[in-house]
Computed example of a mutant assay.
Amino acid sequence: MNRAYLMLISAVFLWGLTVVPMKWTLDTVQPFTLMFFRLLLAGLLLLPLVWLRRGKVSGKAVAIPWMRLAMLSFTGVAGYFLMNTYGISLTSGVNASIISATLPLFTLLLAALYLKEQILLTQWVGLVLGIGGVLMVTIQPQSLQQAHSLWGDFLVLASQFIWTVYVVQLKRPKGEEKLSSELFTALTFLLGSAMLLPFAAWEAWHYGLPSASGKSVMSFLFLVLCCTMLAYLMWNKALERIPAAKAGIYLNAIPLLNVLTSILLLSEQMSWRTIVGGLLVLVGVAWAERRKHARGLVRAKLDA
């Protein structure tokens, strides 16, 4: 295995460990406060790397599209993390992980509506299977008795949709492509943390300052340094040698890793409805992705 694939798999593995340290940190830290400090610290730690690589992308100064970055930060950073983290604080790690697997389905649907990309009939089948799986996972007898769990599932699902808006926006770049990846990420992290500041301030006023334990501090540092900083750097370095479409296939392993670690480290249980629903989501995603890949091969042959 070459170095690029090793970094790619390592990044996916670290992202697959995100739910557990987040749940541990949420034991003592409120969700908005957690995301504010996670994004702020990650953005600040990226700035030295931005400085070191400032002359390796372009020989002349590049204007920063602040309005565009603010919009991308709102969807891909502040909005996504706000809904995702708050949702995870209300529901189980298993549910959150399975629901997060629907991201490719949302991307497929929104690309058709926004980018006018064609969806094949078989891909619609994948969408229906995925939606059916999510309904089986979220609407269970115990979740109907616990309204906060159902609300958490909905927020995690909404976070996948708003992240899809961010991904689709990036398919039509409007100036951000001229920035280095380090600068782009640092700025979106910092802008996202600024957007979350009012929510974190409200939490501090309402609940008081968070209490820190050794477990929560170590979990938080792991989230920032490993799941955010290190995983991002390895992912982008791997993409310099591996095509993005091929690398994207590996992202489907993230929900499976999060489910596994939630069961092993959080002692969470899975009902038969959760297992069946999770399988429907995975089958729907795999079916839709397979048909999309097959269509790409046909187009490549026609172009040749």
Score class of each variant (00 low, 15 high):
278 G>Y: 11
285 V>C: 09
293 H>C: 01
300 A>D: 08
269 Q>F: 11
260 L>M: 12
255 P>C: 10
303 D>E: 15
257 L>C: 08
298 V>I: 06
276 V>A: 15
296 G>W: 15
300 A>G: 02
302 L>C: 07
269 Q>R: 11
299 R>A: 14
292 K>L: 12
304 A>W: 10
264 L>W: 11
284 G>L: 13
255 P>F: 09
290 R>I: 05
275 I>C: 03
302 L>S: 09
290 R>M: 12
283 V>H: 01
286 A>K: 02
274 T>M: 15
299 R>N: 07
278 G>K: 08
277 G>W: 03
280 L>H: 04
282 L>I: 13
295 R>V: 02
277 G>D: 04
257 L>G: 02
299 R>P: 00
278 G>R: 03
292 K>Y: 06
273 R>Q: 15
301 K>E: 09
268 E>D: 00
256 L>S: 13
291 R>Q: 11
285 V>H: 08
267 S>V: 03
264 L>D: 00
261 T>H: 09
300 A>V: 03
295 R>Q: 08
267 S>A: 10
263 I>D: 01
272 W>A: 13
259 V>L: 07
261 T>W: 14
274 T>D: 13
267 S>R: 12
290 R>E: 08
270 M>K: 03
255 P>E: 13
302 L>M: 14
285 V>Q: 01
296 G>D: 11
289 E>I: 04
297 L>Q: 11
296 G>T: 10
298 V>W: 12
255 P>M: 11
291 R>M: 10
288 A>R: 09
288 A>Y: 12
256 L>A: 12
265 L>Y: 10
280 L>C: 14
285 V>W: 06
302 L>H: 10
279 L>C: 01
288 A>V: 10
281 V>S: 05
274 T>Q: 15
256 L>E: 03
283 V>G: 00
295 R>T: 03
296 G>R: 14
293 H>W: 04
289 E>G: 02
299 R>F: 04
256 L>K: 01
288 A>F: 14
283 V>A: 14
297 L>K: 13
266 L>K: 00
288 A>N: 10
278 G>A: 04
255 P>D: 15
278 G>N: 10
263 I>N: 00
280 L>F: 15
282 L>Y: 07
285 V>Y: 06
256 L>P: 02
282 L>F: 09
277 G>A: 06
300 A>T: 07
277 G>I: 06
264 L>Q: 02
273 R>D: 07
258 N>A: 11
284 G>C: 11
